[in-house]
Design a protein around this nucleic acid. Sequence first.
DNA 1: ATGGTAGACCTTCTA
Length: 255
Amino acid sequence: MKIASWNVNSLKVRLPHLQQWLGEAAPDIIALQETKLTDDKFPVDEIAAMGYRVAYSGQKTYNGVAILARGELGDVVTDIEGLDDPQRRILAATVGDIRVINLYVVNGKALGDEKYAYKLHWLAKVRDFIAGEMAKHPKLVVLGDFNICRDDRDVYDAAAWGEDIFCSPPERAALQAILDTGLHDSFRLFSDEAGLFSWWDYRQAAFRRNMGLRIDLILISDALKAVATSSIIDKGPRKWEQPSDHAPVALELNL
DNA sequence: ATGGTAGACCTTCTA
């Protein structure tokens, strides 16, 4: 069983890359972020032709999340208690006995910005939702673009970045509160190395210089940790023509 | 201090 996540930065532009990667990586489940498509424009037929069923929650221009799966998607949730939010950033679905929560966490822009306050409020409400899901589903995976670096190993120049956006103590505390519901950062079960990133800015040749961040995470409950066999970042697609600024991340389970 | 690039929209916003 392979479960993946990828911020595609426009599914319209990146559909060929998604098709390519599905063909070579063959995940059983993949969560997508920043589809940037209204639901009427979602490429359902192209996805079905690849052998996947799909749930999606999109909007015009910004945000948008989707879950593709080999199996049936049940109990789909797009809105959570306490968050009356037109921004399409949350999608939960059940595949077999695995509960999947796909998140496109608010960027936050800068400390002190109103978007930063929205980010922290959003994260608090999402934590409460996850805690409720954890109580119902032993096999829980929470994955997506978190727009937070857990610790300094996840930042290309941590000293220069300091406690700026993505690394501020309140953001890190909010991520820790999500982990404290009973989740594990699957990537760190297999590597404690610094400098392994999932996102590189399009500017300043950042990818070539490995000036990146690890902000795309796959968090798993105890029951899934017990059967996890690998958790990787696939930098391959970031080298392709006209790439997303994010690389896909993938978890393998002995299921 | 600012800009660099990319995507989508409508020439600016978001990342």
